[in-house]
Design a protein around this nucleic acid. Structure first.
Length: 806
RNA sequence: GGGCGCUUAGCUCAGUUGGGAGAGCACCAGCUCGACAAGCUGGGGGUCACUGGUUCGAGCCCAGUAGCGCCCACCA
């Protein structure tokens, strides 16, 4: 073994070896029980940042643990085509070349996207490998590969035949830049400064006016009513009358509706069903006309008459000038409010009425809600479970059509008579009239429509494959909070609808990693950090360890401290392994722990095994790095290794064999978190034929947890600490304690020296405290017996130590 | 407006059924002793956000206050 541990070479070598030897591969024919981690396929054009790395660290620790437990583990690898995102990236590349999507035309553009993907896509798999993610790289899937497209088409037709897909003219979120509709979940609210203008709408009977506040004067042209709250005393008499809309001078009714906020503005609302979601809802309920004056490009359309072609700002200016000329403008104040924007390009969303395809949610979501209530799927932590249920309950019908070019084109064909044919592959003739003059719907599906099939489409569905039989349903899913509604919930209802079974049983909602300055870590903000950067600096094991440590709370600010700790742990492990292996010999004798310190370390190893198992079973990862770090540094290196050193040098066969056994156990416990360094050390152990990655996880060894040994070592710790702190040697202990003490501190000869007085004061304080507690009757009566007993023992020990000093 | 969460050492954070305030980094001092200077040993440093309550005992439980973060929502 090299003197220095160099992660770079070691990690690369094992990543290749594991993969080449097929140790990452899941076997559908295996008789072993399967365990499936349904890893979220990242965007094909993307790059991992540390947030993703944290996610894969958590899942991979579990996957490696399950693999060691003998499960037939599958971690599915792959990519998502990520519709709008990918289209965006390629469009920007075209822009740099001085051309555009429109100039190329649809077919050529899609061709270009594929070319682009082959050239630049897929960096993420490289990043996964660098992290030591134990995915099955032989079965990488893409949401646009041939089999997957078949699955999407089958699913669409299935839903259509169930009557859950329909077409309707409704108000949708329109992105003027992408020129497509977006679901509510694809929006991002941004605070913007606007002007809030209060305009008078004269009453048609000339008896006065109603004042109305608006931030979008351009939409005045599409007003079809004015609404007030039914309980609003100020306007009660006006309901049923008519007012005259400024500029267009149209007479519209005053109506009453509870959706109006009495406290906002003047308490009167101009109703514009064509350009506002709330107004749309009010309009439908009151049967108001739906006028559209803004086109898909965000400019005024032909219905805007003399303002047609103007931008909304210019139109607003003209309208306000008109109103000002008649003294109808009351005031104009600055106003900051949240405005929905496109999460991809941050263009201001235009609510427009548009003919779109929708997926009805009622029948899909009910079984999913029931499954969550029965905990067939459990979200961790619990608070997110409740959130998942409530967001399913509130899920509105889903706008699934997008007016972009990259994605799964809807399997819908129209004949000249307007009949609709929905089939998986291109039909020869219209299903209704037999016409062969068919046109395919140009829209593509929302990306998440295909994502929701991931747990089974990757296994070959809609075909009945051995993979599907072996690996569906799966077990684990990991994700960020904001993805629950977009993806997890939808995978659950899709799985239930097609198989009657949930696709996984546990979902870990992991922490959001913030940049060091406290902002979100994201590519668009420029705050993302490439995990490979950190791997190059400190190693993949160190990174995995550090991310695990950062995974415990809801949000955590990234700092290199935890990763640094991981690097230290790897180096420490390497060095103590060198100590043991350099003195071990080549044979593998049976371990026979014949001393207290050996019995104790085996007990500590078994205790840590239990701690780790409990943490992994409960999906609370934070405790694991701490437990492993303390075990390795304090117990294994500072005490155990120091105590047995001399026996190792002397060639004591039992000590050597026990040391090897203890090291083996330690490596196993560390492997899920730090796979590379442990596998490397493992390869130096004499007589090991299997790789550590598939070595059996240790079983419980209660006989190792010897209480006597633990108590003796507690006394040793105490004595060592006292001696190092004050130079005082406490000799009151039994021979065993003294023997181990001398092994660790090197047999001091000048016992009783040092700052005895300070030590005596310290001990007296402890004794006083202990006596006070034990004299407290309520404490003795109410506290747990173990607590009282431990207080008693401590008091006893302090008294003995004080006696020895006297 | 609704939901979730956070506030502990200079920094990043642990602290799981209430029982002596912790780790890493940073800082200071000492140490090359046959695994480890990418190290070891020791040390300084905290009104556990604030107020009240429950309790023999509260960082932990309850109520409230303040500040911060994230997600959601149809106040134009």
């Amino acid at each position: 073994m090299d003197t220095l541990y160099k992660p770079q070479g070691v990690e690369n070598r094992w990543q290749q070896t594991w993969e080449e030897e097929g140790l990452y591969s899941a076997d559908p024919d295996s008789s072993r029980q399967s365990w499936v981690y349904c890893f979220p396929p990242p965007n094909v054009t993307g790059n991992l940042h540390l947030g993703h790395a944290l996610q894969i660290s958590l899942g991979d620790v579990l996957a490696r643990w399950k693999r060691m437990q003998g499960f037939n583990v599958l971690v599915q690898a792959g990519y998502d085509h990520a519709g709008i995102s990918t289209q965006n990236v390629v469009e920007k590349a075209l822009e740099r070349e001085g051309t555009s999507r429109q100039a190329l035309g649809r077919e050529a553009f899609v061709e270009r996207v594929w070319e682009w993907l082959h050239e630049y896509g897929g960096n993420i798999v490289h990043q996964f490998r660098s992290m030591g993610a134990s995915m099955d790289y032989r079965r990488i899937r893409f949401t646009m590969d041939e089999g997957y497209v078949r699955a999407v088409m089958r699913w669409f037709v299935h839903l259509y035949e169930r009557g859950w897909i329909y077409r309707d003219n409704r108000i949708i979120n329109w992105c003027p830049h992408h020129e497509t509709s977006l679901s509510d979940l694809e929006l991002e609210d941004v605070d913007m400064d606007d002007a809030l203008t209060t305009i008078q709408y004269p009453l048609a009977d000339g008896s006065g006016h109603v004042s109305i506040a608006t931030v979008r004067p351009a939409t005045i042209l599409a007003d079809t009513a004015v609404a007030v709250h039914p309980a609003d005393e100020r306007y009660r008499d006006l309901v049923g009358k008519e007012v005259i809309v400024p500029f267009v001078e149209r007479r519209v009714p005053v109506i009453a509706d509870e959706r109006v906020e009495m406290e906002f503005g003047t308490g009167a609302l101009k109703v514009t069903p064509g350009h506002d979601p709330t107004d749309f809802a009010i309009g439908r309920d009151h049967g108001l006309p739906e006028l559209t004056v803004i086109g898909p490009d965000g400019r005024m359309n032909d219905a805007a008459g003399e303002l047609a072609g103007l931008t909304q700002d210019d139109a607003a200016k003209r309208i306000l000038e008109w109103a000002a000329g008649r003294g109808q403008i009351e005031k104009r104040e600055s106003y900051r409010h949240a405005v929905p924007t496109c999460e991809r390009c941050h263009s201001r969303i235009e609510p427009l009425i548009s003919l779109q395809w929708w997926c009805r949610m009622d029948d899909l979501k009910q079984p999913a809600i029931a499954a969550l209530n029965e905990r067939k799927v459990a979200f961790h932590p619990e608070s997110q479970h409740r959130f998942a249920i409530s967001s399913l309950e509130g899920a509105p019908d889903w706008n699934i059509s997008r007016q972009i070019w990259w994605g799964h084109q809807l399997p819908i064909w129209y004949c000249p008579d307007g009949h609709v044919t929905v089939v998986e592959t291109a039909p020869d003739a219209c299903a209704e009239c037999g016409s062969t003059d068919l046109t395919r719907d140009p829209d593509v599906l929302d990306t998440w429509f295909s994502s929701e099939l991931w747990p089974f489409a990757t296994l070959g569905w809609p075909d009945e494959t051995p993979d599907l039989a072996a690996f569906y349903p799966g077990n684990l899913q990991t994700t960020a909070r904001e993805i629950i509604r977009l993806w997890e919930n939808r995978m659950i209802f899709a799985g239930l609808e097609l198989f009657g079974e949930v696709p996984f049983t546990d979902v870990i909602i992991h922490s959001t990693l913030l940049a060091p300055d406290g902002r979100r870590m994201s590519k668009s903000l420029g705050t993302g950090i490439d995990p490979v950067e950190e791997i190059n600096k400190q190693g993949a094991d160190a990174l995995r360890y550090g991310l695990l440590k950062m995974s415990s709370t809801q949000d955590v600010r990234f700092s290199t401290g935890a990763i640094n700790e991981g690097r230290k742990l790897a180096i420490k492990l390497w060095n103590v392994s060198r100590l043991i292996l350099a003195n071990a010999g080549d044979e593998v004798p049976d371990a026979r722990p014949d001393s207290v310190e050996e019995q104790w370390i085996l007990g500590r190893l078994d205790g840590t095994r239990e701690t780790v198992e409990k943490a992994l079973d409960g999906f609370s990862f934070g405790a694991i790095p701490i437990a492993l770090y303390d075990l390795t540094f304090e117990d294994f290196c500072d005490f155990y290794a120091e105590a047995i050193k001399s026996r190792l040098y002397a060639g004591d066969a039992n000590a050597r064999a026990t040391a090897l056994a203890a090291l083996e156990q330690l490596l196993k416990l560390l492997h899920p978190v730090m796979p590379h360094v442990t596998e490397e050390i493992w390869s130096y152990l004499p007589g090991r034929e299997t790789r550590l990655i598939v070595a059996p996880w240790p079983t419980a060894q209660p006989t190792w947890r010897d209480r006597q040994a633990a108590e003796t070592m507690d006394r040793v710790r105490s004595a060592v600490k006292t001696f190092r702190r004050s130079g005082v040697l406490v000799t009151a202990y039994d021979a065993e304690t003294v023997r181990i003490f001398e092994l660790i501190v090197g047999a001091p000869t000048d016992g009783g020296q040092g700052d005895v007085e300070a030590e005596r004061t310290r001990l007296q304080k402890e004794i006083d405290r202990g006596e006070k507690m034990l004299a407290n009757e309520k404490f003795v009566a109410n506290a747990k017996p173990e607590v009282v007993e431990s207080e008693r023992q401590k008091l006893e020990r302090y008294r003995a130590e004080l006696d020895a000093l006297a």
